[in-house]
Amino acid sequence: MSETFLEDNFGRRIDYLRLSVTDRCDLRCSYCLPKGFRDFGEPDHWLNFEEMTRVVQAFTELGVQRVRLTGGEPLVRRDLPLLAGQLAQLPGLTDLSLSSNCTRMDKLAGPLYEAGVRRLNVSLDSLREEVFARVTGGGKLHKVLRGIEAAQQAGFAPIRINTVAMRGVNDQEIETLLDFCAARGFTLRLIETMPVGSTGRDALEDFVDLQTVKRRLEQRFTLTPDVQPGGGPARYYRVAGSDTRIGLITPLSQHFCDTCNRVRLNAEGTLHLCLGQEHNYPLRDVLRRGAGVEDLKDHLRTAITLKPQRHEFREKPSQVVRFMAMTGG
């Protein structure tokens, strides 16, 4: 394995880290957390900002260029702009982004942008107040919309709207969501439900094959292949004659494991090597024993050898027992 970048046993270069700063969320999306769930990790078990910065430095010195802050809902972690500012100063880190539900973004957009966060993905599954409240366990749509507006005014770009497509819930709203994004210069990204935890498996009852959605959209639009900045798995298309883009994230109907370039570090310091497998490597104890960056790099090289070739969502849908919020989005 090269000393200058991370490469797994299947020749895939790892240059993208999704860093969860908390497993807690102020919403209860039906496909993510069970209703009434309270068994969250203790804050003392979460990595502190110094520990997070140290492990991210080890990653960047091994060629990881992109870091996305996730949760749970990352904005519930106190003083998040402080962490963002520390990470933004790391040599080699060229892209610091954020995934959020934006319920608290109206107050944090400015500080986060000033700290160095530039790109934003927003979870938004409906533009209908009653549907949004049902999916999110009582969330208020107007708070999200206010947060999105604040983020755009602060300078975040691109802003991408992430929508989990659900049959009988929002699948007939996709064109409306696309129009909403087109009017604001956003990109719409549609996501297939995944059997991550019991809630994810339950959500498969509402599974929507995005290949069928693409064919439906092609009856109204001409879609041409396109690209967007970032290291994620979406396949992008531009609506001909416009600047509007749509991305499809299709882990079940058209998986993208052969090009997977990412790993996830959860808030408690466990490195998850695949969203659809239980392969992991704990780093918290290593960090709290005082491991420096060079020692951490050795641990990361070992951890990457555990990354599996692909998920088994279809073959073994009950395999992943952790909820999405525990993994990091």
Rank of each mutant, 00 (worst) to 15 (best):
D8I: 10
F10I: 02
S20C: 13
S20H: 04
R28S: 11
R28Q: 10
S30C: 14
L33D: 00
F40L: 00
E51D: 05
E51M: 07
M52Q: 06
V55Y: 00
V56C: 08
V56F: 05
Q57N: 15
L62Q: 06
L62P: 06
G63Q: 08
V64W: 04
V67A: 10
R68L: 06
T70K: 03
G71N: 11
P74C: 12
R78P: 13
R78Q: 04
S100K: 05
C102I: 02
R104G: 03
M105H: 02
K107Y: 10
L120P: 09
S123D: 06
R128Q: 14
E129N: 04
R134Q: 15
T136W: 12
K140V: 13
V144D: 09
R160F: 05
R160D: 05
D171H: 13
E175W: 08
L177G: 07
R184Q: 03
V196M: 05
V196W: 03
G197V: 06
S198Q: 14
S198C: 05
A203K: 06
E205H: 14
F207Y: 10
V208K: 12
V213F: 09
R216W: 12
T224M: 13
Q228T: 11
A234S: 09
R235A: 11
A240Y: 07
G241Y: 11
S242Q: 11
R245M: 07
I246Q: 04
C260R: 02
C260S: 03
R262N: 10
E268H: 06
G269N: 03
L275R: 02
H279P: 04
G290W: 09
A291N: 07
G292H: 01
R301E: 04
L306M: 11
E312L: 12
K316Q: 14
A325W: 06
T327L: 15
